[in-house]
Design a protein around this nucleic acid. Structure first.
Lengths: 142, 142
DNA sequence: TTTTCGAATTAGACAGAGTCCAATTCTTAT
DNA sequence: ATAAGAATTGGACTCTGTCTAATTCGAAAA
């Protein structure tokens, strides 16, 4: 099982599997996200993709990230009021957020159990649940 | 116990109790938040406060909301990538977020139990936990 | 009451994230 | 090879939020 190892070729397949035609720019953006398995903001993605030569414009980066979101290739994580993070991990999981460094860490949802939630309002359907644990280095005072 | 009923006078006391000198503008902003018990964005607060006459500038509204946050008079809720909501309810609670209307509803934390969370990384301390249940009207398709 | 001085407020310039648009350039099927 | 549609682009634009320097407020001292 080498499927965790992404290269441009199997990423193109992954895009096609999600109904996305794999253009050069889209593959580079997917590669940025999936090769390093991190939570990246749009401008981090842009910086990575354009490291060597200019590969993608700002508009394309945003278009593509939103397309990936729609097609459920990635998820967005909203913890910082200033920017959205994009998460290449789409399996159910929650997050630990270091409020000082801004670093995000995954928590596998499989082990987590939440009980005592009230019933949803009538005619409403769950789209998902986000849990964010905000943490801080113990020695720093708030 | 009529303490749930806020007027300008007991709001001034509430501000003082949190170490905030109660100016005219601060009281109006507090009144906007606490009289209606809703989740408001900064520009909603500004609109409410300036409904009749112009009472507070944009800078004051932002300064004041951030001051209230620091002094734990209110909390911020980050669910919408576009704007922060300010929450006059500081007792432990979570949120239901209607992704179509943007409406936020409180869930009392007292009944909710979360188990199976991994231990925190070494030297880290919890600042708090946010839970957001994203919902949608059942008939609308995603 | 008047003066004084630090605190609060203000307008408007600014910054950064993200969107929009019309023009250009790629894809791809024929 | 070509035409039609899709993707990409730069740059202008919007929106939320911050900053700054100047003004105004208000409480305490005189």
């Amino acid at each position: 099982m080498e499927s965790t190892h992404f290269n441009r070729d199997n990423l193109a397949d992954k895009l096609r599997a999600h109904g996305i035609s794999p253009t050069h720019q889209r593959i580079e953006i997917a590669y940025a996200l999936f090769s390093r398995c991190e939570h990246l903001s749009a401008d981090q993605v842009m910086a990575i993709v354009n490291e060597r030569h200019s590969e993608s414009s700002k508009a394309t980066v945003y278009n593509t990230l939103n397309l990936f979101l729609e097609k459920n290739l990635i998820r967005e994580v909203i913890v910082d009021p200033n920017k959205v993070f994009y998460d290449p991990n789409t399996s159910p999981h929650y997050h630990i957020y270091d409020i000082e460094s801004g670093k995000l860490t995954d928590i596998d949802a499989a082990d987590v159990r939440v009980t005592g939630l009230p019933p949803l309002p009538d005619g409403m359907v769950t789209e998902g649940m986000d849990i964010v644990i905000r943490v801080r280095a113990a020695d720093h005072q708030a």
